[in-house]
């Protein structure tokens, strides 16, 4: 499975998040589109394309924020790797599983943010995970996930055929 298209999709999502998604904020929070894409990529293509595209998209995000370089890259890499192992192990329905998986991914991201904030003393992040804004982000991300999953299902490069041995 190639990593070019998954990376391209995730990179475009990262750019969209810093520009166009700013117009659709609710309570100051925008959905985490990159996270949804990484989760989908992991489930459909396995750990390798998901973690590498996550790493690349995360680095792009790091360049656009005041975050320490590597913060988003690390979070996206681990997310891609973790959800890559769920590949072919879950029945992906239209609504319920995308919401469940993306909520799980958001909570995993929150845990990693907490750990990294503690280890690297990232002042800007202290308490951010427990804010109302982050709660809205989790809900908003879950809300858009079925639609994003449906859209990504139409990209052949992200939907390899299953092989049975």
């Amino acid at each position: 499975m190639g990593i070019g298209i998954p990376f391209l999709v995730a990179a475009v999502a990262a750019l969209l998040q810093s520009t166009l998604l700013d117009f659709i904020r609710i309570g100051g929070a925008a959905p985490d589109l990159v996270l949804v894409i990484i989760v989908f990529t992991g489930i459909k293509t396995g750990p390798m394309p998901a973690q590498v595209s996550g790493f690349g998209a995360g680095l792009l995000e790091d360049l656009m924020t005041t975050a320490p370089l590597g913060l988003h890259a690390l979070i996206r890499t681990v997310t891609g790797f973790s959800f890559g192992f769920v590949r072919n192990k879950v029945f992906l329905d239209v609504v319920f599983m995308p919401i469940l998986l993306c909520t799980g991914a958001s909570l995993l991201k929150a845990l990693m943010l907490l750990a990294l904030t503690a280890v690297f003393s990232i002042e800007s992040l202290s308490g951010a995970v427990f804010s109302v804004r982050y709660a809205i982000e989790i809900g908003y991300t879950a809300l858009i996930s079925p639609a994003v999953f449906a859209g990504l299902s139409r990209i052949p490069a992200l939907n390899p055929r299953r092989t049975y041995l």
Partner: peptide
């Protein structure tokens, strides 16, 4: 173990850049 090796490389890279991003190295 290719996936695990790549994961390790990405994680180490991220941690190293995070460690040094407070200085002028990166």
């Amino acid at each position: 173990h290719r996936a695990v090796v790549v994961l390790a490389v990405c994680v180490v890279f991220s941690l190293v850049t995070m460690t040094f991003s407070s200085t002028n190295v990166v």
